[in-house]
């Protein structure tokens, strides 16, 4: 079936390369001839503030720059507190792609408010949505710094999940990141692909068991 378009919320905290992620994705969808609207909302604060990107591609002109709660096909999040912040935006059959990375909030650090008692990863898993979790600690790699390249790991993951051409996506990465980072970025991309292959296989076997 032809893909007529999707609504994607990309979330995380400042410094995680969310804008690069949405920029690379936009280049890919533009090549496929889609109409696009991408709204990069940078939250209050300096480094460590929340960042969200509303990414919409469609066969038809895109109207609202913001995705209405309940209209998101994907939440792709690089920080798990931020993942929770957008769960309500997903469609019934929406998909979560989330890192287990967590940057504690200043309000919790200074006890202005209490942290959530439950494990955030578990809350995401229990959301009832199709969920893919990527743990950066379990995927540390000498070839690239995963703390800085989680965005590209997620790009590889997402492209594999959607069955996109990796050659085309890697070409876009090459054209848009500084030369000295290209090699590391490709390693990060391939890592994302590999994690996705394992995860998807696991999900499929889970589904066939029930």
């Amino acid at each position: 079936m032809q893909d007529t378009g999707k609504n994607i919320i990309i979330a995380g905290v400042g410094g995680q390369g969310i804008l690069l992620f949405s920029n690379l994705l936009s280049k890919f969808y533009m090549k496929l001839g889609y109409e696009l609207k991408i709204s990069d909302v940078i939250g209050l604060g300096q480094r460590g503030g929340g960042v969200e990107s509303h990414f919409r591609y469609s066969n038809n002109p895109v109207l609202s720059p913001f995705i209405k709660a309940g209209d998101a096909d994907y939440v792709i999040s690089f920080e798990q507190t931020e993942t929770l912040r957008y769960l309500h935006c997903l469609k019934e059959d929406g998909i979560i792609l989330s890192s287990t990375f967590e940057l504690s909030t200043s309000s919790v650090n200074t006890r202005l408010e209490k942290d959530m008692p439950e494990s955030k990863t578990e809350l995401i898993r229990k959301s009832g949505k199709k969920t893919f979790i990527v743990d950066p600690d379990e995927n540390k790699n000498p070839d690239f710094d995963i703390s800085k390249m989680m965005n590209i790991v997620m790009l590889g993951f997402y492209a594999e999940l959607r069955g996109y051409s990796h050659d085309e996506m890697i070409q876009i990465v090459k054209e848009n990141v500084p030369k000295k980072f290209v090699e590391g970025n490709i390693k990060a991309y391939e890592k994302g692909m590999a994690i996705a292959q394992t995860e998807v296989a696991e999900k499929e076997s889970e589904l066939s068991n029930c």
Binding site: V13, G43, L44, G45, Q46, R47, G48, G49, G50, T81, L84, R85, L87, H88, T105, S106, S107, V108, L112, E113, K114, D115, M116, L123
Partner: peptide
Amino acid sequence: MDGIPFRLPV
């Protein structure tokens, strides 16, 4: 969702 901590600028 209830109880998600707020991010004050740092």
